[in-house]
Design a protein around this nucleic acid. Structure first.
Length: 569
RNA sequence: GGGCGCGUAGCACAGCUGGAUAAUGCGUCGGCCUCCUAAGCCGAAGAUCGCGGGUUCAAAUCCUGCCGCGCCCGCCA
């Protein structure tokens, strides 16, 4: 509604001046109407009435008198309501102007330890991150999707230790009371090797000497020991490949992979530590470990942020600082997607960066997805694997397609089912705000009606079906007057699209855009009901133009949030 | 114990830069396929916005206390 706002602002300002209102307060007050039936933009007059010691109800009435000749305005209970003209909205929709983005943004997401397959909880990160990548691209911005590979931590060390020291029989023995590997995934390294990881985790509890061996490996890796790093890579790379295969099935990919060890080897971590040690808020512990007193900068709770161990080696967070400085050098804005368990860590890294004269990155935090039985844990094996969820979703979708479209051949059913399954899974995760924790249930995840991806997909295929029936693109048309209610609602939703995308990106809240697409699909369905495009072989050019515009917007929006824009389902 | 996040119909979830009658879906009840795909559409019932104070003309939204849930509080990652 930015365009509409521009349209009325001048007249509104002059009307307000006539009444004696000064200042810019009204600009802040003017916003989307909460009551849709009342209008499109609303100015609550209460604060202005206060300023002039006048009744806001009278003021709103006076404003209507002044503005009525130029705009569709009304006043109720002290609210001044502007209604956008249907024909104006229609013209805007048909013109379909798209602004070009100009931002450059590097989005780091997923960056999961390469020690096992994705479960639904870990996948929330990838789905959130990839959706932001897609939405920035939809906005026309230049985006880099980056995966930070943790190639030297304890998790990888445990995996490497297990692969070097445990036989397949030993692993089976240790995990005897656990579920066996699903034969379907036996050949997938993330599923196969995570058992070694789990077995090692179990053994560590009984045999402390294992911890010492692992600790040595971790330290050697932190010193940049090549042979250890190579062993690590051989251990995790097949696992990572398996994980990326799963992501790729969901349409998630990366432009760059950056390994943590790079910053140790090239000396930038050492430089960062030296700089941190020269800071005013720097402190030293008894055994020579170094920290920053972030309490001096207002951090509450735990105020000491350790960045260097007593033995001089770096910590994960220290390397993260070096990594972020490298990221800033590329001239991109920075956005990270992190689990809520990283809130403190991320705050510390951000504050440390600011101490070094850099900016803190923008971060999206998300809460964990729980199972009805409790939280998910790769270590404990209490998880729903993404691979299983995707298969299940596809199977469920195939059953629906076979029932609804019995005439389709097997290949078509397969294609539709895969698209519906993947889209539904992504959408169910993206549609809720990230900070809200939710409990995974198969029922929810496999719901294909109402607020779901298939609902949007279905609306899109209806528009496609009409386009097929017409068999050509839309022509110039005359805009009818008046425009009926359901058309106006659709046009209004279309007009709002740009505002929603803006806000979605500015606030890093992809669920806002997901909800907008639901709204777009829903208002299109009502339009579809009331406004036939083809009647007895004759095309209504206006309705077709609106239909085509919506089809494109749905298509682009779906791509923007990772829903497959099928043309038929 | 301290820090941070969350708490909205039976369930799930939106709204939270203060503004009108708290939106949507599932579930429940009722209606719509000789008509561009019914994974759809139309209608009905269903909400002490966790609880108590406060600020304000106006509070689901801001402040504060309490309760419940989650995450973190390691010289781990």
């Amino acid at each position: 509604m930015k365009g509409f706002q521009n349209l009325i602002e001048k007249d509104l300002e002059s009307a307000l001046t006539d009444l004696g209102v000064s200042g810019d307060l009204w600009r802040k007050l003017l916003s989307h109407s909460r009551e849709r039936s009342q209008g499109d933009l609303t100015l609550p007059c209460f604060p202005l009435g206060k300023q002039l010691s006048r009744s806001p109800i009278d003021m709103a009435d006076d404003l209507v008198t002044i503005l009525a000749s130029k705009h569709d305005v009304s006043a109720t209970n002290g609210y001044l309501n502007f209604k956008a003209d249907g024909e104006w909205l229609a013209q805007r929709a048909i013109d379909g102007k798209k602004k070009a983005g100009s931002k450059k943004i590097l989005i780091e997401h997923t960056s999961a330890n390469p020690n096992g397959p994705f479960h639904v909880g870990r996948a929330r990160n990838a789905i959130l991150g990839d959706t932001m990548v897609r939405l920035y691209r939809l906005n026309g911005d230049e985006v880099k999707a980056e995966y930070y590979v943790d190639d030297m931590g304890k998790q990888v060390a445990i995996l490497a230790w297990a692969l070097a020291n445990l036989s397949s029989e030993e692993v089976d023995e240790v995990l005897a009371d656990k579920d066996e590997i699903n034969p379907k995934w036996e050949e997938k390294a993330d599923h196969a090797r995570v058992r070694w990881y789990q077995a090692a985790q179990a053994l560590r509890e009984q045999r402390p000497e294992i911890d010492q061996e692992i600790a040595k490996m971790v330290h050697d890796s932190e010193d940049g020991d090549d042979s250890v790093l190579v062993a690590f890579e051989n251990a995790y790379q097949p696992v990572l490949d398996g994980m990326l295969e799963t992501l790729s099935r969901m349409g998630i990919g990366f432009d760059t992979f950056t390994r943590e060890s790079v910053f140790v080897i090239d000396g930038s971590v050492a430089k960062v530590m030296a700089r941190l040690e020269s800071l005013e808020i720097h402190g030293t512990a008894d055994n020579g470990a170094h920290f920053l007193d972030l309490g001096a900068r207002g951090l509450k709770g735990k105020t000491e942020f350790f960045f260097r161990r007593g033995d001089g080696s770096s910590l994960y967070a220290t390397r993260d600082i070096a990594y972020h400085m490298w990221k800033w050098q590329q001239g991109f804005d920075l956005l990270n997607v992190l689990g809520e368990d990283h809130r403190l860590q991320s705050k510390q890294v951000g504050m440390a960066l600011e101490e070094l004269g850099e900016k803190a990155p923008e971060v999206i935090f998300y809460a964990f997805i729980k199972l009805p039985e409790g939280k998910m844990s790769t270590r404990k094996g209490n998880v729903v694997f993404m691979d299983d969820l995707l298969d299940e979703a596809k199977e469920h979708a195939a059953a629906v397609v076979r029932e609804l479209r019995p005439e389709l051949d097997i290949d078509s059913v397969e294609e539709i089912a895969e698209a519906v399954g993947v889209s539904a899974v992504r959408f169910n995760i993206i549609r809720v705000s990230p900070e809200k924790g939710f409990t995974f249930t198969w029922d929810e995840a496999l719901s294909f009606e109402g607020n779901s991806a298939p609902f949007i997909m279905y609306s899109h295929t209806r528009a496609c079906s009409i386009a097929r029936k017409v068999g050509r693109g839309s022509n110039d048309c005359t805009i009818p007057s008046p425009i009926n209610q359901s058309t106006k609602e659709l046009l209004r939703t279309i007009e709002l699209g740009a505002d929603v995308l803006d806000r979605t990106l500015k606030e890093s809240k992809p669920h806002l855009y997901a909800n907008h697409l639901l709204e777009l699909a829903s208002t299109f369905n009502a339009f579809y009901r009331d406004n036939p495009v083809v009647v007895e072989g004759v095309v209504d050019e206006f309705n077709f133009a609106i239909c085509e515009r919506t089809r494109v917007l749905l298509h682009d929006g779906m791509v923007g949030i990772g829903i497959e824009p099928l043309t038929s389902m």
